[in-house]
């Protein structure tokens, strides 16, 4: 088969992947794998949301789980107490998280570096403590039980196979939003801020405003993820929305490469699936996870071209690909 052109080949690959992902629930996989799949989509959503702030705009945020939690609790409470429809709960959860994010960003985006980090960490803690102690509203450590599953078009989305589509839908929608945003002027402004604040300011970018906007959008999306989480788990309690969760999400963003959409998808997939794959090692599981985390950071960092064997291997692979292309195509493909 001719490797005609890179673009067409990639588009084909993409279509195949899309078909597989859409039909995943129909492939007869176990409930457990489908559950994991739903979580992967939710975490991709979370990683992408943090990517707005930390990846694209370069603002470190260590308290992101707080907005995840706000979204989850708002959505759960609205559906439990006021019996509102799932989509309304989700929208309001996103709004609540977004507004909270905006309020946090107003003071926080004036800070930078370590100060910003600790303030976001502090906000994360504050939200956690409030969730834990505002017993009248959130039932604190007792958690919220019996959260209703979404009912759309008369179908109850309770099983992982069906919930998969809800998670998939929202995740893809957000990813498209993200892609457009990066490509747009606003996105480029943010990347300018990340790369060199002073230069960006000199070019007329209102740094503060853009950072606040990015943070607010980021939190709103985390709120969506929270809502999805709550209506899937059917039980939430404050213990999920702590600092550890925030750092896990940040790890996904960093691992995937700041600002890279495909990167955070891959990283979310890897970091969600990893504990599962390591289950066989039970006692050593978290240790291996830690080692892998550090290893992944170092491997990304190390200038592998310093090591000749890796270099040679890469060159060899490149030469093979070039040879195939040259044989099959014309001058266009010869210049790889």
């Amino acid at each position: 088969m001719k490797i005609k052109s890179n673009r067409i080949f990639r588009k084909l690959l993409f279509c195949i992947m899309a078909c597989v992902l859409i039909s995943l629930p129909l492939l007869g996989l176990s409930n457990f794998v489908m559950r994991l799949a739903v979580f992967v989509w939710i975490y991709i959503l979370l990683a992408t949301s943090l990517n707005f702030t930390s990846g694209v705009a370069g603002q470190v945020s260590l308290g992101h789980a707080a907005f995840f939690g706000i979204g989850a609790y708002v959505s759960a409470l609205l559906s439990l107490k006021l019996e509102l429809h799932f989509l309304i709960c989700l929208a309001l959860a996103a709004a609540a998280a977004g507004v909270s994010g905006w309020l946090v960003a107003l003071p926080a985006m004036r800070l930078s570096g370590g100060y910003l980090a600790i303030v976001t960490l502090g906000f994360g803690q504050i939200v956690y403590i409030v969730l834990l102690n505002w017993i009248d509203l959130t039932r604190g450590p007792m958690g919220l039980v019996g959260i209703p599953s979404p009912v759309l078009f008369g179908i109850e989305f309770r099983k992982p196979q069906s919930y998969y589509y809800i998670a998939l839908f929202f995740c893809v929608a957000v990813l498209l939003l993200f892609k457009n945003y990066i490509g747009s002027r606003a996105g480029r402004n943010l990347m300018a801020i990340r790369d060199d604040e002073t230069a960006a300011a000199a070019m007329g970018v209102d740094i503060y405003k853009e950072k606040v906007k990015a943070f607010a959008i980021s939190s709103a999306i985390a709120g969506i993820a929270g809502s999805l989480y709550a209506h899937f788990m059917l039980f939430i309690d404050p213990s999920k929305f702590v600092g550890d969760e925030s750092t896990a999400i940040l790890s996904m963003v960093v691992l995937g490469g700041l600002g890279s959409m495909k990167g955070s998808i891959a990283a979310a997939l890897v970091l969600t699936a990893l504990p599962e794959l390591l289950r066989g090692f039970s006692r050593y599981r978290m240790l291996i996870y830690g080692i892998l985390l550090v290893a992944m950071m170092i491997t990304k960092a190390v200038d592998w071209s310093r090591y000749s064997w890796y270099d040679r291997m890469q060159q060899w692979i490149q030469r093979v690909v070039q040879a195939i292309n040259r044989k099959k195509g014309g001058w266009k493909n010869g210049a790889a």
Partner: peptide, 29 residues
């Protein structure tokens, strides 16, 4: 390695988190 290759500060942050997990779990074991 991260410092020598001019990785963004984020990478070091995550690396220290990983180290923290490693140390805690070694003590746990």
């Amino acid at each position: 390695p991260l410092r020598l290759n001019n990785q963004p500060k984020f990478a070091s942050l995550i690396s220290t988190i990983g180290t923290s997990i490693i140390l805690q779990n070694i003590m746990f074991l």
